[in-house]
Design a protein around this nucleic acid. Sequence first.
DNA 1: AGCGGAAAAT
DNA 2: ATTTTCCGCT
Length: 532
Amino acid sequence: MKNRLQYCGEADRRGEVITSRTGPTRQSLARGSGRSSYGTSIRSCCRRRSSSRHAWQQGEYGELSSKIPMKWQAVGRRKCKPQMNYDKLSRALRYYYNKRILHKTKGKRFTYKFNFNKLVMPNYPFINIRPNGGVPQSAPPVPTASSHFHFSPLDSPNEDGHMNHYTGSSSAQSSRESLNDINERKPIPSETEDLHSMEWRRSAEHLSSRNTVGGGPHGLQKHKSDLLLPVFSMHGMYPDAHSPFAVSPLTGRGGLMSMPHSPALSLTPTVFSYSPSPGLSPAFQSGSCFNFNPEEMKHYLQAQACSVFNYHLSPRTMPRFPSFMMPPPHRPFPPEEQPSFPIKLQPPPMGRKNKERPQSSEDKRPAAPQLPLLPLKVEPVSDEEELLSDEELDRNHHLEKEDDSDSEFDRETPSPKLDAEKAVHTFVKPAAPSWPQFSAPPARSTYPREGTEDQPETSERAVKDSPSEPVVVEKKEETLPPKFRYKRLWNGDRQAEAAEDRECRKSCIINGCRSSEVSVETSATVAAAADS
DNA sequence: AGCGGAAAAT
DNA sequence: ATTTTCCGCT
């Protein structure tokens, strides 16, 4: 299904999936498709958007809608899935809520929307085109993991391939809005709305192919299919000058890597995690000089910790080297020849059974000698975040915070142990004052159950992991069952989210993380499987 | 309309 | 593990 949703996206690049259904009663709908997933149904509908049969509506970004009722049956029939009906379809879609792939567009019938917000673009944390934070609810998927969704260029008015300008806050805002009120949407400049279909498609493909790379069942959802955006390393993948992708952080050609602030954020965990080899690490690619400045390091570490904290990132996902600390270039391949690891790592998507990820063993090996987690103290944070004051959290929502902090990016590139240790020291102590949240996270009444349950475990784990185990430790479980988390996110605790956003932002600012944070999107899942 | 639990099917 | 199917509840 995941893969299929991509196609939904195709129908409407805006991320909203609007289904149509004729009859109000379930029974009338009952005819649908055979074993095809709902996604399939959606896809077929989407593809036909322009056709007379299905009037797919364009809504906000990621929105898909069909105004012609009862088409589901037709679709089902066509797909040899007579059993398919809207009821089932919707049920399937609702499962995506939990995965944060979709959410319901409130107030719109049969309308679902892709959650671009939650799909954070790990690669381009710095993209910030809208300083004011004004982001449409249905922010374009581009900067986020949502880019997995390939929106069909077919009917789309904006096919020219303009990449949107995104702000770090955009995703956050988007998230907030999407979560609750569509009425709060802000108009999006048409320019911003443009999506590069081709790009999307490509990225989606890459994603799907590298599906297994994610390695491991981690991440908030623990969905195997969860993916991370592959796009980053693709050279020239986003040729558009306006596109954030024009410059890949990985390429090290001047782009984000050279950004002065928020070193922790400058690189995305995703990128690292997928680095097939240390040599590919952005850090190695972009800089030619290696510096170590304790102060900077300290700052860096704090920022990093902040990032981890606020976005539930695993410390392991952090780049080994801050931008100011570029290790000597080490390139196994000439830049031109650098294989995009997405491809390299990517075994063709296979059926569920193949999710085994044959390469898993491969991936893990390099991970073994991994660098010690830097600010391990942060670990507890991911869970604690829930305890943070709303206001504080809200600050950091430049980019969607990723709940998948648990995601394991074990494939980090090795880094000097010394540095890491130093880093830990540097960070851990000073960090405390900077993070009021850490020391005394306000209890949140909102999620009493989750919070209470989580905390003990989290702390425990943190204690365990950080000090004694410098080496990568696999986090097996998420503290909070995805179910609850999702619930919280989507059902309502809007305030909480907003607050979180704010808070995070604040803390980031305090720590010098001005930029948006990387987040790993669980929803990457969407792109995960290839549709075949 | 929509949500989500539960169980069956894949 | 995910999807499909059924169904009760709001």
